[in-house]
């Protein structure tokens, strides 16, 4: 009940959503540092606009909508929306974004293949049109149902699914050669 001024409730919401929102924004803007700043902006807006949440939609829908709009505002302000590679890493935050390390100790060959797959996947996602990419990310990585995505991106469910189909088809063409390897990893 963060709306009633409950700091503990806010922290609970923060704990629950900080990761997903950060991940979403990393993928939306392609830069970890920017994503970190934008995540702060999102939670700041969450506080300032607490009174605008009317329980008419799920809270998750609302906060993702705020996050998406924040990312779009940032993109507009930046004039050009340049998506850094998803596998780019910064000096202070450890391993590459999409580095995949197999639990059973990768052989050099497996590691090499994994890295190659990660890069290919990152590149393929990056190449997607923005509207397809956000739908794909929300559905695939955030587990958001299509109906909820349609609220976040303000499009009809049919449109959302259509974008998803295009996104999947583009990714399939880009990543077809890695399919077997991915199954082996998972």
């Amino acid at each position: 009940m963060f709306q009633t001024g409950d700091a503990a409730a806010f922290e609970a919401l923060f704990d629950k959503y900080k990761g997903p929102i950060y991940i979403f924004l990393v993928r939306q803007c392609g830069n970890k540092e920017v994503a970190s700043d934008l995540t702060q902006d999102v939670f700041t807006k969450l506080i300032k606009k607490a009174d605008t949440f009317k329980h008419q939609s799920k809270f998750s829908t609302w906060i993702y909508t705020v996050a998406r709009n924040t990312a779009m505002d940032h993109a507009r302000k930046s004039k050009h929306r340049k998506h850094a590679s998803l596998d780019a890493s910064t000096a202070d935050d450890g391993p590459a974004l999409i580095e995949k390390v197999s639990d059973d100790g990768p052989t050099p060959e497996r590691r090499s293949n994994a890295n190659e797959l990660q890069k290919a996947l990152a590149a393929a996602i990056e190449k997607l049109p923005a509207d397809q990419r956000e739908v794909f990310i929300l559905r695939e990585y955030h587990g958001m149902p299509f109906a909820e995505i349609s609220e976040v991106v303000e499009a009809k469910v049919g449109t959302v699914k259509s974008r998803m189909r295009y996104a999947l088809e583009s990714l399939r063409q880009e990543l077809h050669q890695y399919e077997d390897y991915a199954k082996e990893l998972s």
């Binding site: 950060y22 970890k32 998803l86 974004l97 995949k100 990660q118 996947l121 990585y141 998972s186």
Partner: peptide
């Protein structure tokens, strides 16, 4: 394939 990506 998409699942093989690690979360930031």
């Amino acid at each position: 394939v998409a699942k093989s990506i690690d979360l930031p």
